[in-house]
């Protein structure tokens, strides 16, 4: 019985880490611009698809991964530069709608440039399961969870210690004041899109051996990642992690112990409950209205 529980927990953590990795990108962009970037799922797709196609073209895996992340960063930067920046000053809702448009565009472009098929990426270190107390764990899950931990730690350091990270936070809190102390707020916006795209691509590469990759893979992952970021509290990388794990483990436990038919319903119930009780999320800053 306990090995069964362990198996559900492993599944929940793997899936939760996937959601968390996708959710991180939402947090970063929100941090610097208060914008929800609905094209985040597409960067996850670009990371996976670009790696698969570069490897098919003969590039060794590490090179393919590096180039794929670089490609996503460039596209993220371009998205900020050519789609978001010209709309500066527009209401946040308008900018969010622009990101939805961008996601549709990127998905369509991926279908044209690459293709519409399912693609498989080999697992980084084999696919022989590791036995933990009777439960089976795939080595790739360790990569996903490990990757998530490293990225979150790096982000924590970046935002609390690095000058440029602090500048991004300052821009988020008060763009005018940030500009007055000499921060290029425009640069910060572009940087946040590039950073979020890069992290999205890394997420896409880490999870591709588990989820497979295809042009439409970003839709559902983006939605779940967004849910994770909301539950945890937008703007806080730790929040995305907590939110992702809560949603992922709840889904696995519901499927395991109650009924797999209610799995998605429970995930949405949690999101509703969190939004009702703590509208700013588990780790979110409490909003204080200035009068």
């Amino acid at each position: 019985m306990s090995s069964q529980f362990l198996q559900f927990l492993i599944s929940g953590i793997t899936v939760g880490a996937t959601y968390a990795l996708v959710g991180l990108g939402f947090s970063i962009v929100y941090n610097s611009s208060q914008v929800i970037n609905f094209a985040q799922g597409e960067f996850v797709m670009i990371g996976g698809m670009a790696t698969v196609f570069l490897m098919a073209a003969g590039a060794p895996m590490p090179l393919a991964i590096a180039l794929a992340v670089l490609l996503a960063v460039v596209i993220g930067f371009a998205l900020g530069k050519f789609a978001i920046e010209p709309a500066r000053g527009a209401p946040v809702v308008s900018i969010i709608i622009i990101t939805i448009g961008a996601s549709i565009f990127l998905r369509g472009a991926a279908m044209l440039v690459w293709d519409r098929n399912l693609h498989h990426m080999p697992a980084f270190s084999g696919s022989d399961p590791i036995d933990i107390g009777g439960a089976a764990l795939l080595p790739q899950s360790v990569w996903v969870v490990g990757g998530m931990v490293i990225i979150v730690a790096a982000l924590q350091v970046f935002f609390s210690h690095a000058r440029i990270g602090k500048a991004m936070l300052a821009t988020a809190f008060n763009p005018l004041a940030a500009q007055l102390v000499g921060i290029s707020t425009r640069g910060m916006l572009l940087l946040s899109f590039a950073l979020a795209a890069g992290i999205g691509a890394i997420a896409g590469i880490l999870i591709a051996p588990i989820t497979l990759t295809y042009a439409g893979v970003g839709i559902m992952l983006g939605l779940k990642g967004f849910s994770a970021a909301i539950v945890g509290g937008l703007g806080n990388p730790m929040g995305a992690v907590a939110g992702g794990l809560v949603v992922g483990i709840a889904e696995a436990m519901t499927a395991g112990y109650i009924s797999s038919a209610y799995k998605d319903a429970v995930a949405f119930l949690i999101i509703l409950a969190v939004l009702l009780i703590r509208p700013s999320g588990l780790f979110g800053r409490r909003e204080s209205e200035r009068v």
């Binding site: 069964q4 198996q7 559900f8 492993i10 599944s11 929940g12 793997t14 899936v15 996937t18 089976a136 999870i207 588990i210 989820t211 839709i219 559902m220 992952l221 939605l223 779940k224 696995a252 436990m253 499927a255 395991g256 797999s260 799995k263 998605d264």
Partner: peptide, 13 residues
């Protein structure tokens, strides 16, 4: 399992 699910180990367990 749901649309877009990426892990079916709980159901299979």
């Amino acid at each position: 399992h749901g649309a877009g699910d990426t892990d079916m180990t709980p159901q299979l367990t």
